[in-house]
Amino acid sequence: MFSALAGMFGGIGHRIIDRLWRFGSGLRFFAYILIYSGESFRRLHLTIREIYFTGVLSLIIMLVSAFFVGMVLALQGYNTLQRYGSSEAIGVLVALSLVRELGPVVTALLFAGRAGTAITAEIGLMKATEQLSAMEMMAVSPIARVVAPRFWAGVLSMPLLAALFSMVGVLGGYMVAVPLIGVDSGAFWSQMQASVDFKEDILNGIIKSVVFGVACTLIALFEGFDAPPTAEGVSRATTRTVVNSSLAVLGLDFVMTSFMIVA
């Protein structure tokens, strides 16, 4: 009985230490990326290539999702707002929800699923097939050549994707609110223009998406780089990327939102 209990606590302790250890290695990995980043700016084509893979190829799924999210927001918003006789405010509701919350958060979640998994799997496989070792033996740092460009590509792509997400989402909201429901088009836009503040809303949304970009890309890269060099190791790492990125995004979102609203 006692030993079983001790074993249980021991197990929990081990897992906690393990997590902390990984978190520490993750931070050290981040520091390395920053140190080796010079390369990815000096040779911009490496980063641009990765922007294509992480950003451009994620575009379709982002935009389609954004359109649907915007349409649903408008439907739900109208349903509630009309009870209070303020259905013209629907444009404000759609725009603020997207710019402040849904744009950055949903983009980051989709990014983790679409680009993050691709990054983890690619780097994990490069490690498993000794490509990273080979690079090291050629006196080329894999962090400078492979990891850093992908990092900056992710960090640059995320705010752009989030901005596009919000834009297309607003468009989706407009399509439902104005042609479908019959809200006045002028009211839709003018109320939105009057109530969306650049610093309060848009800038904060951009800050969020930059932070999510750093978090999601870093997690994806770290999981790939840290994966055991086997098929099973890579597949587990890919799963961990999605789980950890999603948790990180939602947790960070709460923290940042509370600071932004209090401030």
Binding site: L125, M126, T129, E130, Q131, S133, M135
Partner: peptide
């Protein structure tokens, strides 16, 4: 140094 890896390790 130049090294030929056992599995080739070409960049895929």
């Amino acid at each position: 140094m130049g090294m030929l890896f056992q599995q080739g390790a070409l960049f895929t």
